[in-house]
Design a protein around this nucleic acid. Structure first.
Lengths: 180, 180
DNA sequence: GGACTAAGTTATTGACCAATCACTCACTGG
DNA sequence: CCAGTGAGTGATTGGTCAATAACTTAGTCC
């Protein structure tokens, strides 16, 4: 297997492991084991642990953006909101995606706090791309964009807390966790 | 100093340290140093590291609830929204509060994933209390409640990412990071 | 002044982890 | 057949960390 293919496998494995353990709580050994490769070999493919996390973060953001873009492609603003909401619900039904996203925000804060500004900078760029896409597809309406993104973040919190289906918070949203 | 007073000091120190390092990334030694006490003594005051984090999490949630309650006390729904928004902005201007909150969501996910359901259960209860308070003060209007809480979560993300003041996301919210 | 209690410490242990180094193995071109 | 290259491993190292155990004060009550 070529180094490039291995790197791809590492990014997928890292997403899964970091989602379940966070940045510090995940060992490079665990990632290597999931890839099926020795731990030191990771450091031939990436300079260090941080780079692996960053690659996974980029992947996570890009998946979100791509899904929202696909779901709303060519739709008028009125229909785009529902379509993107549905797409986002499907995406976050994958707990791996959801938990990694939460870890990303937390890790960004830690990184900023410890002087690593490049980390959050990468996330800010990705966030901007998602924001702009949503804004465009919702007819460049600030209110709608804030509402959509806010509800997305709210759902993230519900899912992270494992709020049971039928909880008053879910009902107020007119939504429920997506079972599949 | 009595054990109870020490425990209080530990909770405050833990909030500060966990905010900057996350659950796994913060050593009990760092907390002890901030309290001005030996590391092993923490384990006389709390059964383990997890219990310290849980106590800090309870404190964090209670501070949010209390601030929102104070700010909106006796106000009609129309004014309560603005008042609570202002209060929340002030609270999260304290980066310690904000970052700890993000760590809390991330840690809840990790805990659930690893079979520790009590952790998230405590947070769900606290979340429910905050939700009910906001719902009540906003005139029991689901739409408003979702809007308010969603915008709160959105602002959390902005702050965690250190989105610069004046960023289009901040402008769309009609808000800006609270400097003091 | 001695027995008791509660606050606090030093020393230690057993485990884990990121990263480095030196090495093996399989393949390919000349 | 051999020199070179790229994939991959085993062993190690220096460091950190949660938790335990055993010890030391300092006060208080009788």
């Amino acid at each position: 297997m070529s180094a490039e293919e291995r790197r791809e496998a590492v990014v997928r494995a890292a997403l899964a492991e970091f989602a379940r353990g966070g940045y510090v709580g995940t060992s490079t050994g665990a990632i290597a084991r999931r890839v099926g490769v020795s731990q030191p070999y990771l450091f031939r493919l990436f300079p260090d642990k941080r780079a692996i996390f960053l690659a996974a973060a980029a992947r996570c953001c890009e998946q979100i953006r791509a899904r929202l873009a696909d779901a709303s492609d060519g739709l008028p603003p009125d229909e785009a909101a529902g379509a993107m909401g549905e797409a986002y619900a499907q995406l976050t039904a994958d707990r791996e995606q959801l938990l990694f996203q939460m870890q990303m925000y937390a890790a960004a804060g830690v990184a900023e706090e410890s002087g690593d500004h490049d980390f959050a900078e990468q996330l800010r760029r990705s966030w901007g791309e998602i924001w702009d896409l949503v804004h465009l597809r919702l007819g460049a309406d600030d209110g709608r964009t804030v509402g959509f993104m806010g509800q997305g973040m709210l759902i993230n919190a519900f899912l992270a807390l494992n709020l049971p289906p039928g909880h008053r918070s879910w009902q107020a949203c007119g939504a429920a966790p997506d079972g599949g």
